[in-house]
Write a protein that binds this DNA or RNA. Structure first.
Length: 218
DNA sequence: AAAGCTTTCAACCGCGTGGGT
DNA sequence: AACCCACGCGGTTGAAAGCTT
C-alpha cells in the first residue's frame, strides 16, 4: 500500500527525485547495488545506482522493507507484549523499542502501535479505572493468551537471506555479503566508471531474459 | 453490484544530532 | 565557534485494500 509514483520535472525540464511507491524494478536496482557495493553514502548512492530517488527515500526503503532480515507479516503475541511493555518504559522511542525486536522496524512497530496496541492499552487503563466493568473484549483475552505462548520464534528470520540468491542471479556466484550487523557499511564507494558500467551490464544481461529492457541504460 | 466508510501501512517531511572542516 | 553535510528519528499523510450498507 502506498502512494502512486510520480516523477517531478522542474522548469528546466530536468528530472528531479521521484516520489511515491517503489516499483519492483527500483527495488531490484537498489538491492543489487547495495549487495554489490554496500552502503557507503545514501545521498550519493541513488545517482550511482541509477535511481531517481532521494537518498533519504532509498535509505527508508532499504531499512524498512528490502533489508534481508526485515521481518514482515503480523506481530506475535510475544512481540506485542514486548512493544507494550517497552512503550510503557520508553515512550515513543520507536527505534529503541525496535532494537528489542530483531527484524522489526521502528516504522512497522510505530504503525502497529497506533493501529492495534494504543487502543488496547487505553481500554485496559479505562477498565482499571472502572472496576465494576464486567465486559472483556477479545483483545483482553489475547493479552492472557500471549503470556502462555512460547517465545522461540521471535528471531526466526534473522538469518534468512535466501531471497537474495533467488532475486540476484547476476551476483549469485560472487562473494556472499553478510548483511548482519553493520558489516555492509564502510565497504567503500563503487570506484571507477568502468566498474560501475560492468555492474549494470551484468544486471541488464540477466534482466533482458525477463523482458526488463528498461535496465539497458548504457 | 457499487457506493461510501474505515483500516492499514508505506512513504514523506521536518527536525535533531553528530562528525568533519 | 560556526557552518555544512549525512544520517536517523518520530509524527503525519494519503492511496489502496478491506469492510459495511
Amino acid at each position: 500500500m502506498s502512494t502512486p509514483s510520480s516523477e517531478i520535472i522542474n522548469r528546466d525540464g530536468l528530472k528531479k527525485v521521484k516520489k511515491g511507491a517503489w516499483s519492483h524494478e527500483e527495488d531490484q536496482m537498489l538491492i543489487s547495488y547495495v549487495t554489490r557495493y554496500g552502503i557507503w553514502n545514501w545521498t550519493q548512492m541513488p545517482r550511482f545506482a541509477g535511481l531517481s530517488r532521494s537518498g533519504k527515500s532509498c535509505r527508508l526503503r532499504w531499512m524498512n522493507y528490502l533489508k534481508p532480515n526485515v521481518k514482515k507479516g503480523s506481530f506475535s503475541k510475544e512481540e506485542e507484549e514486548i512493544i507494550i511493555h517497552s512503550h510503557s518504559v520508553l515512550g515513543n522511542r520507536w527505534s529503541e523499542i525496535a532494537s528489542k525486536l530483531p527484524g522489526r522496524t521502528d516504522n512497522s512497530i510505530k504503525n502497529h502501535w497506533h493501529v492495534h496496541l494504543k487502543k488496547r492499552t487505553t481500554d485496559h487503563h479505562n477498565n482499571l479505572s472502572t472496576p465494576n466493568t464486567i465486559e472483556q473484549d477479545d483483545d483482553d483475552i489475547d493479552d492472557v493468551e500471549m503470556i502462555q505462548q512460547p517465545a522461540n520464534h521471535i528471531n526466526e528470520n534473522a538469518d534468512d537471506f535466501s531471497f537474495l540468491s533467488s532475486s540476484l542471479t547476476p551476483l549469485e556466484d560472487q562473494e556472499i555479503v553478510d548483511f548482519r550487523d553493520d558489516y555492509y557499511y564502510d565497504m567503500g564507494s563503487p570506484g571507477t566508471v568502468d566498474e560501475l558500467q560492468c555492474f549494470w551490464q551484468q544486471l541488464c544481461y540477466e534482466n533482458l531474459d525477463h523482458g526488463n529492457s528498461h535496465m539497458n541504460m548504457f
